[in-house]
Every structure is written in C-alpha cells, then in structure tokens.
Design a protein around this nucleic acid. Structure first.
Ligand SMILES: [Mn+2]
Ligand SMILES: [Mn+2]
Ligand SMILES: [Zn+2]
Ligand SMILES: [Zn+2]
Lengths: 153, 153
DNA sequence: CTTCCAAACGAGAATTTGTTTCATTAAGTC
DNA sequence: GACTTAATGAAACAAATTCTCGTTTGGAAG
C-alpha cells in the first residue's frame, strides 16, 4: 500500500501473487498492463475491460475478467467504485498519495475526480474511533453538472 | 429539504406528490410508513422491503416497490445508498441536520453510521468549485470491523 | 527436465437484481 | 358521477455477476 501501484512491474505482480499462494498468469499480467496504460480518470466496468481485451485480440474469458478484478481489488492493486450506475467500476489504486474522490452527475453520469486530503483524515479518525481497520475511503458526491443544469426544461 | 422527513404526515406526502402531478396512493403511503417505523441505522433493499410488506399482509407488487423507491429518492424523502453489496439500500433521508455516513465491514457487511459535518462542508466546497449542484454527499469507509479482525486465521 | 497437484482457465448455465410491457384499476379533476 | 391518465400487478425481459465443471497450466518438488 505504500508503493505507487502505477509502477507495478511484472516481477512485483508475480511476487505479490505467489506470496499469497496465487499464480502469476498471462491473463492477470495483461489486465494489469491495460489498467496501467489507461489515462487517469478512466473508470472501467468488467464489460468494458473485456471489450478492450477482445479489441487487442486477447482471448480472456469474462469469468477470468471478473475473477481478476476481485483478486486485484483484494490485493489493493485496483479500486472498486460504486458509482451510480448498475455496475461496478474499476481503476488503478493510487493510494495513499494519489487518492481522490468522485463527483457524479445523476443526469448524464459524467464523473469528475477531485483530491481532498481532509476527507481521508476524517475517515481515518472515525474508523479508528470504532476500531475498524480502513481499506478504502470513498467520498461520492451526487449532483447535477453545469451542462445538465442548463438543458433543464 | 429543510424539514425533517421523519415527520412526514399523510397530508404532506399527498401535497408533495400532487404538486408534481403524481398521485397519492395507499401503496406509497404504506411504504413511507414502514420506513418511518424502522429504527435508525436500518438500510433496506427493495427485496427486504417487499418481504416486510408481505409479512404485513400488504399485497404490493415488486414493480411498485421499485417504482416507489425511485420516486421517493427523487423527491428527497429516501436516500439511496451504494454500499458494497450487489444491490442498493434505502433509508429515510434525514438531511441536512441528521446527515450521516457509513463504515462498512467488507467481511461481514456490518454497517455503522457516523455523523461528521466536516465532510458535507468539504463536499459542498468541491462541488461549488466545479459548478455542480449537490443532491447527496456520501462518504463510505470500507474496512474490517473489530470482530472480523479477531477471527482472522 | 519431468512429475504432480492445486489453482486458474474458458464455456456456458444459473442466479440476482432491476426494468419493461401491457391490460386493468383507481386518483384527482370538473 | 364521468372522464382522463397515472399507477398498479403480473409476467416477460434484460443486464450484471456468479457458479459449475471439465480442461489447462503454474510452480514446487524431486
Ligand atoms: Mn477515479
Ligand atoms: Mn444510514
Ligand atoms: Zn450531467
Ligand atoms: Zn466484520
């Protein structure tokens, strides 16, 4: 958790997997590479990741996509986001230094990111007070973006 | 939004519905009554609400349950929560005075509530800066509760 | 380098959650 | 009380995710 996950090398992934009794497979490496190649602010669903794999002529099943997303989330490599659509989104976990939060337009689903160190501090304090060990801290702001405010009828 | 929704009376619900061209039905009233009767900290899925209705011998279809949850969320009577399960949860909206956030155990799904005025302040500031009109501000802390930390193997 | 075994894989069935359709009912208006 | 249209219930449908199971393969051990 203290290293920047963007720098994950093949060897580091293999190490971290094997340490947990898990295996380093071409599928897992490929999926990590894809996330590392995405621009910041990209939040992909399992389906979107699968489509990209197909586009790159990688034959990785949807089952494996879902399995890998779960494992990498548990490992702290990815972050699973519950934004306001009917499916989950994933992004590279940039914590702690690059941690950020999300502003979601409930009309057009546009998502903006923003950094705010104060939130994580508040979250950490609250969790401590209740004896919880914090894994992730997500502030979601649901609202209406400027564009959607204008095209109101 | 300035009134405490817990006090919603039959007449207030009818008023607010009719003002929007919607109708005051026995089903909608019943669902509001149920949420008002629940203890704080109860977060119900559509399915759980439907089961309670059946238990009370109310014959309200699941379609109506979903429709009502959406409408009441849009009206600001209920709050829709994206906690880390595979379905949405609903609770009475107590904003702004009684607003609160959630601490979720990723092992046992236990949920604790906590109030923290600072979060909403930070959220409001960020949203303003980006021109968004905020509807809801939700801080979710994912972690491991004390019990689950102990029963670690 | 070969053997072995559990972990991981792919394919597809199954499940869960939520939405849509449509004929019927009933709320609100005059 | 009659009219209009929103709301309802039942059931079909759809999307997202999980499960099952036979096959493949990573990696440890010899
Ligand atoms: Mn993000
Ligand atoms: Mn709550
Ligand atoms: Zn928008
Ligand atoms: Zn727990």
């Amino acid at each position: 958790m203290s290293t920047l996950n963007v720098m994950y090398s093949d060897e580091m992934l293999k190490q971290q997997l094997n340490d947990q009794g898990l295996r380093f497979t071409p599928q897992r490496l490929k999926i990590l590479k894809i996330f590392q190649s995405l621009p910041r602010g990209t939040h992909w669903s399992a389906e979107e990741l699968h489509e990209e794999l197909l586009a790159q002529a990688e034959r990785i099943s949807l089952s494996t996509v879902y399995r890998t997303l779960h494992i990498m989330t548990r490992m702290g490599i990815l972050r699973e986001l519950e934004l306001a659509e009917e499916h989950k989104h994933y992004e590279l976990n940039r914590s702690p230094s690059g941690q950020h939060h999300h502003l979601i337009c409930v009309h057009c689903n546009r998502i903006l990111e923003f950094a705010e160190a104060g939130v994580d501090k508040i979250g950490g304090k609250q969790a401590d007070a209740m004896g919880y060990h914090v894994l992730d801290c997500q502030l979601n702001l649901y609202g209406v973006c400027p564009d959607c405010q204008n095209q109101r009828h």
